[in-house]
Nucleic acid binder design. Structure first.
Lengths: 162, 162
DNA sequence: GATTTTATGTCAACATCACTGACATATTTT
DNA sequence: AAAATATGTCAGTGATGTTGACATAAAATC
């Protein structure tokens, strides 16, 4: 009996622990991402915008002069979806576009001062949350956090980020 | 001149690096979460369901007998939103409900075998992605990953997770 | 120079998932 | 008996995504 119990435990326990460990990670990602996006949502509400607008403003701010096509590749949505959001952002003067002089089919996107201001407020809020978590966790943990997240990301985007 | 430049550099560089560091983290979270949910979305398409269904199936599987109210608290959506999804899942027999004998106002939710099967397939896929990233990153990085994500999560949910 | 490809935009129709507000029902608590 | 709780439901709305088809301007190629 002890032998059987011992064998069972040796085989089953690590599997259970592995499974439990991975489930905890799934939940960590779910809750952390939800709270992370929530911090920006409060600001967006005030300006009457949603997450789609936030993503566009963020990546245009991060990559001034980005083309519509490159933005589509980052966001992985259809051009019809982007077009609606982008149109609103240009109507309300958060973003302006200018033809690329080298290839005038391309529209290069930039934040207006109004857009840059909103972007700064949104990024500041999310950065605060991250900075606090980083401070509590310590530099080593932050390196681990970055390493694991990079491992989750597809090869193409990973290359761009690291 | 060298003094001014020196002062500027000493003050500006760390701030710039900090900012850059935090922006990279924002992007890591965005891309990692997108790819993480994408893995499950493929399976969900086959079964004709969306992310909302996935979240419900996951948390009912994780907390057998959970009440509707507790599920609402985890998901942070309105009961009208949950009701639609839950109704579909019960119609298609992924989830069944039973009144709590102790308080018959409460409906306790459980996965059916069909629901457990789908849940297992979804979780297996996401676990594979995480396990691979964990294996590449190493145990120390995984600890850091967990620590930082916990730091991002609000106090209430953090207490439940750790 | 004519043709093809590329980058972008747009129109129309539709699906999913969230929201608010109002009201209903059964059950438990006070 | 009255109030509070847990849940469900009806009706309307908004944000964000999808597909498919077609249009235009500019660049690249034959």
């Amino acid at each position: 009996m002890p032998e059987t119990a011992g064998r069972t435990k040796l085989k089953a326990d690590p599997l259970f622990l592995r499974d439990e460990h991975l489930r905890q990670a799934i939940e960590l990602l779910f809750f952390a991402y939800r709270d992370f996006t929530d911090t920006a949502d409060r600001i967006l509400e005030i300006d009457g915008m949603g997450r789609a607008h936030h993503r566009v403003i963020y990546f245009v701010g991060r990559n001034p002069g980005i083309t519509v096509g490159d933005l589509l590749a980052i966001l992985k949505i259809t051009k019809q979806s982007l077009s609606r959001v982008l149109g609103q952002l240009m109507d309300e003067e958060y973003i302006r576009q200018a033809s690329d002089p080298e290839d005038r089919r391309r529209r290069r996107l930039h934040l207006t001062p109004k857009g840059a201001d909103l972007e700064a407020r949104l990024t500041a809020r999310q950065s605060q949350l991250l900075a606090e978590a980083f401070r509590e966790a310590g530099a080593e943990s932050v390196e681990g956090f970055r390493t694991v997240l990079l491992g989750i990301i597809n090869d193409e985007d990973r290359a761009r980020l690291s």
